[in-house]
Design a protein around this nucleic acid. Structure first.
Lengths: 139, 139
DNA sequence: TAGAATAACTTTCATAATGCAAGTGAAAAT
DNA sequence: ATTTTCACTTGCATTATGAAAGTTATTCTA
């Protein structure tokens, strides 16, 4: 079997799992756009190729970051959802957003700025509110 | 010219710059191991290939995340240091460490755990202490 | 001060990952 | 019954990564 991890370092090990240009975008879409099907993911602004999307969805599932399921009465559409492990990527994603907000200002549209500002003003509560929303969505 | 960014999304844009398996490891070594030269970076546990290291150092410099300099009286050794933009990657890296600590526990050695626990207990002050250490190192 | 060692790469070539376009098969809608 | 939709897969070109050896300019050492 091929080694999954390059070392025992927590940073390195996380990058072994999600250190690419696509995985976190799928997670982002699940967290902030409520996307949950293959075709929804394939419609992102960043134009992920269908084979890469397919590959990442199965990797993320294998890693226990997302789940794959169905809705009753529909055999066609697969419904992907975040596991706890996946949900806990939220703080990472928010810090990334903040870094971009601080350091790539020229390039970014203004849309996300109020969002990041709200996060900055009280990170803990901001994160807990989103976690609560995750709960609600699952009923 | 080739487009650097896939979209205006802050997450996507950050990943366009540092969304790979090596860039953040170089930053990590600068932040936590005080590494600053090519040969120090090439000695990491994760065994980065020399051509990739070279490529990443120049990318990171081009992106304004690190600086390349010399020490007086030494024309040979290049000294790399973090810019403000680079230093601000600290919160991202710490959140990644925390995620691994929470979710990859079986795989990780115990060494980093007290560190992450300290971070968890008071993130703001932990981060500010490290920022202060950055200042000190530069004199 | 001549030769050895070191620092920082570069080059070459094999392998793996990504990207693009087209194609497939089952399920659902018309 | 036929067309659409959904979730992929396949084939092939391009790009990125990895391993090993080679290069050049210092700097150290005998």
């Amino acid at each position: 079997m091929k080694q999954k991890f390059r070392s025992n370092c927590p940073i390195s090990s996380a990058l072994d799992l999600i250190g690419d240009k696509w995985s976190l975008l799928i997670i982002r879409d699940m967290m902030f756009s409520g996307k949950k099907t293959y075709s929804e993911f394939s419609n992102s602004n960043e134009k992920i190729a269908s084979n890469i999307l397919s590959n990442r969805l199965s990797m993320l599932e294998e890693l226990g970051i997302i789940n794959k399921g169905k809705l009753e009465g529909n055999k066609k559409t697969n419904i992907y959802s975040l596991t706890q492990k996946g949900k806990e990527l939220l703080p990472i994603i928010l810090e990334i957003a903040q870094w971009s907000h601080n350091n790539l200002n020229d390039h970014l549209k203004d849309g996300a700025k109020p969002f990041v500002n709200k996060f900055k003003s009280n990170k803990e509560s901001f994160i807990h509110n989103i976690y609560a929303r995750f709960e609600k969505q699952e009923g």
